[in-house]
């Protein structure tokens, strides 16, 4: 199956073959490293169901020159082991790669205990850490090679659902840390509406762009790839050439892609109209992913409607935000 998790394993095996000192740290999550285990069994360390210990061991391995890759449920890695991520890894910019799986509604019937909607909000507050999510198999290969093989420092990669992860584009753009990947063309030169999606929701984003174009808007799709850092230079280019920016993410509306991008617009001093499409609240529930996405308005049809309503209300000139600032006295 060409899903993101299997792409990650391809990259890890490749990097080991090239002589990189990759060590996979399993927290009873060895299925995420199956290919590595089959090929290089000595490169997988099993820590048992012990996320904090796994994170601490990863820090120790990194201090000794290895590139530890720890993978497990995002909820448990990013919350139970948060302090180890902060204190043992990020403080020292250690070369640990954290792969949080089953983000968003991916865990489906497992319910809110296993569904991560806060991981970005939590981790984007940590200095030195890169926070990202690939959108498909090919994107995982590209991001993996750069972030695991070339960049020294802590990285958090989130992985969501494992179905429907076909490639969105044959021709992929090279990875530039902090920049979104243009999916509507080679480069962004301007549009009425920019749609930025995170992870697998690129597919929904493509449907949204189609829907908007059918209604006469010029729309452009980006695969965010990165939530942190976000290049301000890159953001300024978008801000100058767009009326409305739409973010779509399988994460809580608080502290995710939308908020981080909004902050970046604020920092460059130019805030376009903004439509944030995210999960409402941070506690998920049991159910089929597609159903839950729709319930939270994360299907293409609901998103298009929300965008059109925002434009009708004049939100295409960033007025929503300015009005809020005025009301709250935050000038």
């Amino acid at each position: 199956m060409k899903d993101r998790r299997s792409a990650l394993q391809e990259v890890l095996v490749e990097l080991i073959e090239e002589g990189k000192e990759i060590v996979c740290v399993s927290v009873d999550s060895a299925s995420r490293f199956k290919k590595v285990k089959d090929t290089y069994p000595q490169r997988v360390i099993e820590c048992g169901i012990c996320e904090q210990t796994g994170m601490g061991v990863s820090a120790g391995l990194a201090l000794q020159g290895f590139i530890p890759v720890i993978s497990g449920y995002a909820t448990f890695l990013t919350m139970r082991a948060l302090e180890q991520i902060r204190t043992d890894i990020c403080r020292w910019s250690l070369n640990v790669k954290i792969c949080g799986t089953d983000v968003g509604f991916a865990a489906q019937y497992a319910g809110f205990t296993h569904q991560a909607f806060e991981d970005i909000a939590i981790l984007s507050s940590l200095d030195n850490l890169i926070v990202c999510e690939p959108c498909d198999w090919q994107d995982t290969l590209l991001l993996g090679r750069v972030l695991f093989g070339e960049i020294h420092g802590p990285v958090y990669v989130r992985f969501g659902a494992r179905e429907g992860e076909e490639n969105f584009s044959e021709h992929r753009q090279p990875v530039e840390v902090g920049c979104f990947e243009p999916l509507s063309g080679d480069a962004f030169t301007g549009a009425d509406i920019v749609v930025v999606t995170l992870g697998q929701l690129a597919k929904v984003g493509a449907e949204v762009v189609n829907g908007l174009e059918k209604r006469g808007y010029q729309a452009f799709l980006f695969n965010a790839r990165f939530v942190k850092p976000i290049s301000l230079e890159f953001v300024a280019k978008i801000a100058r050439r767009v009326k409305v920016v739409v973010t779509i993410e399988e994460h809580s509306g608080k502290g995710g892609l939308g908020d981080n991008l909004l902050l970046a617009f604020h920092e460059v001093g130019c805030i376009p109209g903004f439509v944030k499409c995210a999960v409402s609240g941070n506690f998920g529930s049991s159910g089929k992913r597609d159903y839950l996405l729709q319930k939270h308005g994360l299907d293409a049809s609901s998103i298009v409607t929300k965008i059109l309503q925002t434009i009708e209300k004049g939100g295409d000139r960033g007025r929503n935000i300015l009005e809020w600032e005025h009301r709250s006295g935050n000038h």
Partner: peptide, 9 residues
Amino acid sequence: ALGIGFALA
């Protein structure tokens, strides 16, 4: 845990 990381390395 850090020490075990060292020892494993």
